[in-house]
């Protein structure tokens, strides 16, 4: 690989990594996996023999397509290993980020669903998932035992899944 190629690769990465990483993170919701998949996306994309034929303004679309295929592959593999991952949830999220309005609607939908929970259930989800507190920190803030935090968050999410399904059925 000559210096010109190197510079060109560095420029492509510099200009595209951030939106690509955000796109991947939105699906996997953890930094470790998002970094791995971002790296793998570049390795696969830039080793594609016809990458040079892609117009620069289509780089992002191409990288996103490669990324979504890597995510699907990984989830499919984890499914064969016993993880019951819902692969069908990928295109649904994909559509929501392709369209900012749809993404905003999706977030509104989640917030409205959360508002249907009782106060304790909403609070535990807010602390544990949105604020990222540990079980013991959440227990301290809520004044309950750590074991009860786990039970409460389980019941909250169980209810939330029902609420979200009902709402989706209603929208359909």
């Amino acid at each position: 690989m000559n210096d010109d190629n190197m510079k060109s690769i560095a420029a492509i990465c510099e200009n595209t990594w951030e939106p690509l990483y955000r796109y991947i993170y939105y699906r996997v919701q953890n930094r470790e996996e998002a970094e791995d998949i971002t790296q793998e996306t570049y390795v696969k994309s830039l080793s594609y023999s016809k990458f040079n034929e892609i117009e620069p303004d289509r780089y992002m679309a191409f990288l996103k397509t490669v990324a979504i295929n890597i995510i699907r592959d990984r989830w499919r593999k984890s499914k064969t290993m016993g993880t019951n991952t819902n692969i069908d949830s990928v295109p649904e999220i994909e559509a929501s980020t392709e369209d900012m309005e749809e993404m905003a609607n999706r977030q509104l939908f989640i917030k409205r669903s959360l508002s249907k929970l009782n106060e304790d259930q909403r609070k535990v989800i807010e602390l544990r998932i949105i604020n990222g507190y540990s079980v013991s920190e959440t227990a301290r803030i809520m004044g309950i035992k750590p074991g009860n935090v786990r039970v409460l968050q389980y019941r909250a999410l169980k209810n939330l899944v029902v609420i979200m399904n009902e709402k989706e059925d209603y929208h359909e």
Binding site: Y26, R27, V28, Q29, I93, R106, Q107, I110, K111, L114, I125, I129, I130, L157, L160, V161, M164
Partner: peptide, 8 residues
């Protein structure tokens, strides 16, 4: 659902 909530 956890992943969707975290996406907020």
């Amino acid at each position: 659902a956890v992943r969707q909530i975290k996406s907020l």
